[in-house]
Design a protein around this nucleic acid. Sequence first.
RNA 1: GCUUAUAUAGCGCAGCUGGUAGCGCAACUCAUUCGUAAUGAGUAGGUCGCCGGUUCGAGUCCGGCUAUGAGCUCCA
Length: 654
Amino acid sequence: MKITLKDGSVKEYQSPMSVQEIAYDISEGLGRATCAGIVDGETVDLRTVIEKDCNLSIATVADKEGLNTLRHTTSHILAQAVKRIFPEAKLAIGPSIENGFYYDIDREPFSREDLDKLEAEMKKIIKEALKIERFELPRDEAVKLMEEMNEPYKVELIHDLPEDAIISFYKQGEFTDLCAGPHLVSTKGVKAFKLISSSMAYWRGDSDKAKLQRIYGTAFNKKEELEAYLAHLEDIKKRDHNKLGREMELFTTVDVIGQGLPLMLPKGTRMINKLQRWIEDLEDNEWGYVRTKTPLLSKNDLFKISGHWDHYKDGMFVLGDEETDREVFALRPMTCPFQYYVYKNTQKSYRDLPYRMGETSTLFRNEDSGEMHGLTRVRQFTISEGHNVIRPDQVESELANCLNLAIFVLETLGLREDVTFRLSKWDPDNKEKYLGDDAYWENAQGALRKILLEKELVFTEADGEAAFYGPKIDIQARNVYGKEDTMITIQLDCAIAERFDMYYIDQSGAKVRPYIIHRTSLGCYERTLAWLIEKYAGKFPTWLCPEQVRVLPISDKYADYAEKVRAELARNGVDANVDSRSEKIGFKIRDARLNRLPYMLVVGEKEEADGTVSVRSRFAGDEGSKSLAEFTEQICREIRTKEIRKENPQEEGK
RNA sequence: GCUUAUAUAGCGCAGCUGGUAGCGCAACUCAUUCGUAAUGAGUAGGUCGCCGGUUCGAGUCCGGCUAUGAGCUCCA
């Protein structure tokens, strides 16, 4: 039989050679002891291909696929180790995932000691260099085999496979597992792996079904790669906003106050205020917004009109009981209907549109108790919310306006490269969750898609992620652990005006229903702060820093001059403090560095005599001696332009 | 909401099989007045998350609650 590889080389094999051996040979030829190959874009086990057709052209094994195969095999080795040490355990599924693999197992919880034992056993299995062999069985025999092995989850999986599915198994030593593959050809191919953690997972992700234990692990081709990955995990933890933000005294939580209700501390508040003032001035002065301030709660009547009472009541904090109380109130989960009444306060002409209303808006959402996390998922948050009331002919220009503002904000914060765009659509299979019909959704989604295409943005489309009243453009960011959150949203709503009887007078004097864009320019301040902490590892651009300059007098003798410097900077709107402790200069510098101060000004005899400051920064290290006026002008310009100066790696913490 | 782990001084931690608590940093006081990543000495600080139980005796064992972390999407 002849096998053509992608590089054009042809391999020929004599027929007595087993499929296993041929696959092994090809795999080694491709630089890795794997049996995975890509044929017509599909990842397959080379052994299956060889059996079917001897003259196939086999693409080279892509690195990513090779890694998936390696990890999938490692998960099987884990399962084998589990069965050896804990024979009573029942196996569920064990796929490879983005950064490793897992295996779901029905057993009591695993301790770290159990994981260590399993790791040791896995190493033994690898050393045994067990050949991994593939075989197929008809359905009834497959079920019988799994029943004999007392694996009820596997039996269920087989029953759920489609009629025409090939039911394949992989055998390594005494261990056999139901699996589609592909796999390495021998357990010895696993060189570097680690069991990371274990936790609970539901069978088939369904909370009504059995509770299984999931063991997470990872595997790499080389030991160095594994070590680099584990070091990366450690590094990531240092950037985690939930840890760093508390360490830097930006926010905290208190158990008697409750879950999802973080307290912004003075430094965190300072940062949020800087962001908020910037956004408010930007929107009002440059992007044509008017500002509103509307109540944080309302009678539930309002939410009945808006549809929230029917569609979002579980997510709201309701005050009072409809059965017994004359009036029931609810804390607002959004600002929309309040701003509609701002619009309705005076009659609007077609000339008044677009009518853009912005509000720094505090919202309340009753998230499930297990969903809260740091500053990214909270029960009370403040958002740069806004509603643009527009004429139907203004849909495109106004969507573009909102998107441009959002992108400008992201660019200014240095976050533009870190986001992905998503068109969030309704779920056509779950229509009762949404207002409006097919035509309404197709139109609205089409309008959003058009603007994304016109702006040449790369975006994904997601079913079932829309708001109940309309589709959205979501701007997504990932946290340090790779989890995605919505940062900015732009939503088109062509239906709500009817419910609130909003209209404008057109050229002919007729009343016309406007459309509404729900949008944020920066999104939620808490979540943005979390994102900034992780992006900059706490070393924020100067304009955002809660403390921008620290003046460090060499000794008490220069305290008066230090205070003079501080006062001059403060007069110019710079956040500056003096470190007047009677410590050595080295101590003060160390402390300021650990606090991630952008600028330190050392002042002593020489500086006082010359009216200068000795500048040391996070960006350039020693910037030399400058007159106070010169430094003030420099930092004021940096703050005004929101410059993001490049960090100097040599100034990294020791 | 579910599973699981954790909760000891402001922070980071120790406290073995039950005998009422320690370390480092920070804070405070005193001395030092110093030129670019830690000056020295001393002092003070804790109802061991909260409530209950077992026990002669609980930081330690048991139960409940609260909070925090991880996971609950990735289909053999």
